[in-house]
Design a protein around this nucleic acid. Structure first.
Lengths: 341, 341
DNA sequence: CAAAGGTGCTCAATCGATGGAGCATGTTTG
DNA sequence: CAAACATGCTCCATCGATTGAGCACCTTTG
């Protein structure tokens, strides 16, 4: 209530004075080591009460400086603008807290420089582990962590210098392609080559998904149209622009599409609506990612959901039980029948 | 490259030894105060090079313990599962970094206990400001911050003990209701009472929106049907359940709906699709929040977008220029014509 | 009743970075 | 040429919590 209390923060020394005891007793009581340090239950209770009254909160900076382990775990994430990353972040926070870890998360907006800066900042905060999600240069981050003696993991996009947990993109894409093909055949009467749109051909996920896309075409015996593989980036505008340009040069577009992410799907749906290219009848669509509203957009839209929970269980299993031999762990994505929500 | 480097972290003392100088010189060079402390440019460069070679990163815990200001700014956010909060978090991070602050964000899943615990943890990390977004008990958080001499702000949901920045819910809801009414009249030939669904009547935003909803009915001269105000919570299931229950007791539902958030809209759209209540013709909908896919869901869906950028500019203006007299700052939301994306 | 052991606490060094104070030099200035 | 000043550093206390070591004061045991 007094002046000092509102400006300066309460420390264990203040509490010690109030309780008529030493700072080490206060420290021991508040961090739970008091039994080990043979402090009486009576004193412990008195200290606890005073601490509560004063609204005391440890100074983590001081505490962590002294401790050997920080219990801080960092995550770098590219964006918060879709359900996949949103769910990764939320699940990560929850699981970290369940394990007594303090999660710090930072969003790098797919900016390679920001990624490095963010990683360095995380190291400054003494993270014990750093999870790089969808990083543009995961190996660079792993290198920095290794030099600082900090563990690192890649999530969503794999690297070569740290264990990587990703979706089984090949199998998922193959099955998704098969389903689009079946839906398309049901509507059109025959199986025809699909369009692939979104992502960057240089990234592992996209190239694996394209491989699955090709394999599924092979499986059914339909040729792949190379000019219809448009890995033009993740932004909605990119997808929109490349569809527009393809329509300009080719005329009629395929009636089935494999869309590489919900972000790309945003652009695709916008173009379909704005251009009126398909008239009333939208194409049969499959999307490698899930969004509740996108799922309601039509009857012929198939969405695969990446299994975020299992992916993060794999992440924490490595953190808790140490690094396994496998450097690449692939988690099967979930198809419609499998998920309840 | 040696054993030590991989296990123990490099400190300024290590760098000082490598450079044949003192730790304070190293510290001054690396934190930019070297000119003020009259270190020669030559030595500064040598130290910088060695630091780079060693991949040195300051120990923030030690640094912050000594400093007076932490430059850490905290945000508490309820969920990451919609574009509104996603955009708040992403914008907040970006703006904080632009101002040389380090943002830490934590998600409390609308759990009141977790909120308090998160606030206490933030205080332990010596945040200078805490922004409580959509908090269930903002005043409790403000109280904790005040006791620790830390500034706090409320975002999205207002409180009474700290400045609050929120959307102008009343005016926004009034205009949104007017638009739904016009769309509905255009389709049905006459203006009829709308349905209000989602949110909690006890929270400020919902009650202000309901007030705007009523006022708009008055403006047009249409009575409000009290049994059609369903503030049954935020979860999609809640909205779905209360529509189902209403349809069971009343038969035909209104042909125009005011949906209080995209989260509720998820449940609404799901119910409309599953129940088949409306046949082919979905009701005219307005939603207080924006989502790109939801916006594409039909022609008669009007979405207001909360002006996240302006809201956060107001937040940082208070942080930078001090607290103004106003305790409640209301930011007008954005209607369709206004936004480009 | 002395030795041995237990109980309940305090002392003081420590973590790494910071910054006020101060110590050698070299350079002006009256 | 001495006083005054500038330059380029280093020394060391400090931030708050932690923890090994150790000091009194019991209580038990042979």
């Amino acid at each position: 209530m007094n002046q000092e209390k509102s400006t300066k923060k309460t420390t264990i020394y203040d509490l010690a004075e109030l309780a008529g005891t030493s700072a080490s007793a206060v420290s021991a009581v508040l961090n739970g080591t008091w039994k080990k340090r043979r402090i009486s239950a009576k004193l412990a209770e008195r200290i606890t009460n005073i601490a509560d009254e004063q609204g005391y909160a440890v100074n983590m900076q001081a505490s962590l400086l002294r401790r050997e382990k920080s219990k801080i775990i960092g995550m770098i994430v590219p964006k918060y603008d879709n359900r996949y990353f949103g769910s990764i972040v939320e699940t990560f926070e929850t699981m970290a807290r369940e394990r007594g870890l303090f999660p710090i998360i930072t969003c790098t907006r797919r900016d390679p420089e920001l990624e490095i800066e963010a990683a360095r900042t995380m190291l400054s905060y003494q993270v014990e582990w750093l999870v790089a999600t969808g990083a543009t240069d995961p190996d660079r981050i792993s290198g920095m962590c290794a030099a600082a003696g900090v563990g690192s993991l890649n999530l969503d996009l794999p690297g070569t210098k740290a264990p990587s947990i990703i979706s089984d993109n090949f199998t998922g894409a193959r099955e998704l392609t098969r389903r689009i093909m079946l839906n398309s055949r049901a509507r059109m009467g025959e199986a025809r080559p699909l369009l692939f749109i979104g992502g960057r051909a240089s990234d592992h996920n996209t190239s694996e998904r394209i491989r699955g896309f090709r394999t599924a075409h092979d499986d059914i015996g339909v040729p792949v149209d190379e000019s219809h593989i448009l890995a033009s980036g993740y932004a909605p505008e990119k997808a929109e622009a490349s569809l527009a340009s393809l329509a300009r040069t080719e005329g009629a577009l395929p009636n089935g599409m494999f869309v590489n992410s919900t972000i790309s799907l945003e652009g695709v749906m916008r173009w379909i609506k704005r251009s009126g290219h398909y008239g009333g009848q939208a194409p049969v669509i499959g999307c490698f990612d899930w969004d509740p509203f996108a799922a309601l957009l039509g009857d012929d839209i198939e969405m695969v959901r990446q299994d975020v929970k299992s992916m993060l269980e794999a992440v924490f299993s490595i953190i808790e039980n140490g690094v396994t031999d496998e450097m690449l762990i692939e988690i099967p994505p979930i198809f419609r029948e499998d998920f309840s929500g």
